[in-house]
Amino acid sequence: MTFVSDRSVAEEVVQDTWLAVIRGLPSFERRSTLKTWIFRILVNRAKTRAMREARSIPFSSFEDPGGEEEPAVDPVRFLPNGMWADPPRPWHEDSPDKLLMRQETLRRLEREIEKLPPNQRAVLTLRDIEGFTSEEVCNILEISETNQRVLLHRARSKIRQALEQYLRGA
């Protein structure tokens, strides 16, 4: 869903990937983990598909985290000297399990992840949800370590902010 625009196309890409994995398994050389290898195939197929459809994001923009400033925290929350004006308040829920106990929180999180730009979503999903290392993510998405970190930083900051807003309102 990060690369292609509609769900049925995404499902097709996933299917193709599994078939390619089965076909390619004898030539898998164990230079990476199987999981990384599978994701590489998936990403490559999705990219090819996206290019063919030419209705998704251009991939130069995938490599490039984007020049424009995306502050981690809304600048109005700081004083001119860079100190907090509107500081974060401790969250009542003090563990991930407690946070996810409410279905609403879960839905909210998923929606926020969907709202991320594709490249940020891809990095966040692979790193924090799927648990790949940064090296593996760079390998899968074919991006530099620095770009990976910038994308991860922006994505994580946005998700934290969304959680904060949601938990404040609740």
Partner: peptide, 21 residues
Amino acid sequence: RRCRIYLRQMKMTIQTLGKLP
């Protein structure tokens, strides 16, 4: 203390993402 809270929230966000079903 405020930045400690911020750091804790960030860690919590990351851990929570890791626990998504």
